[in-house]
Design a protein around this nucleic acid. Sequence first.
DNA 1: ATCCTGATTAGACAGAAGTCAAGATAGACA
DNA 2: TGTCTATCTTGACTTCTGTCTAATCAGGAT
Lengths: 120, 120
Amino acid sequence: MSKQQVTSERSGGCCTPISVAALDEALASEGAAVFKALADPIRLRLMSIIASAREEVCVCDITPDFEVSGPTISHHLRVLREVGLVDCERRGTWVYYWPMPQRLQWISTLISVPEVALTH
Amino acid sequence: MSKQQVTSERSGGCCTPISVAALDEALASEGAAVFKALADPIRLRLMSIIASAREEVCVCDITPDFEVSGPTISHHLRVLREVGLVDCERRGTWVYYWPMPQRLQWISTLISVPEVALTH
DNA sequence: ATCCTGATTAGACAGAAGTCAAGATAGACA
DNA sequence: TGTCTATCTTGACTTCTGTCTAATCAGGAT
């Protein structure tokens, strides 16, 4: 398996990193929307809690870790969901969230830097 | 010319991706600040133009690609500079920008997903 | 049915961010 | 010196965002 293949598999579907070729406006808008979702300390922590958990995470377990109100947590989770970084499901009284790893990997690849560009 | 030099973790080896372990508040704040800089379509395009160029880029070559005023471009470039994603230098009449690839790679690694998490 | 708990939605508000016009600054050159 | 060009900074305006309280919704249990 070539490096090229590994890269495209890990990129969550596609995309040339911005260090390789300039983005067109459409991709820039989509990418910026995802970065905007990660551009808040609380949302980034929420994303990291959900992404690093081995299982789905209950909102009830997340909320106590933060010093903002429940509705605010709910708002931030919705922002993450609307850009496809997480998804959720109600199960009985509780709501559970899980990460969408391909979406996260896509945005990571978008800003990744080829090794040659790091060493020069 | 700009303030950069940030955490210790970004040199070479980098940080622990958020899919591996939850972020503490300090790293979440720093990461969110960098994502905020990328969370605008114009800034993301600016970053991609600068990062993908083989040479330093003159502001005079960038500005015509956008439909906003010169001061607005200047403002966006400053935002990118303040989070350490680019740096610049005046040379004669013109100002040249170049990318800081390690900083970009740091934020990319922060949200990268281990292969095992993509296939399960 | 009615109540209780967990979570989301609606509405309001302060502060942040994007934009532009006008002015300031840096350097080249006559 | 003065002027010209490229870029940045300032100040103002408008829109967007994060946060709260209060109200609403979804399910379980009494």
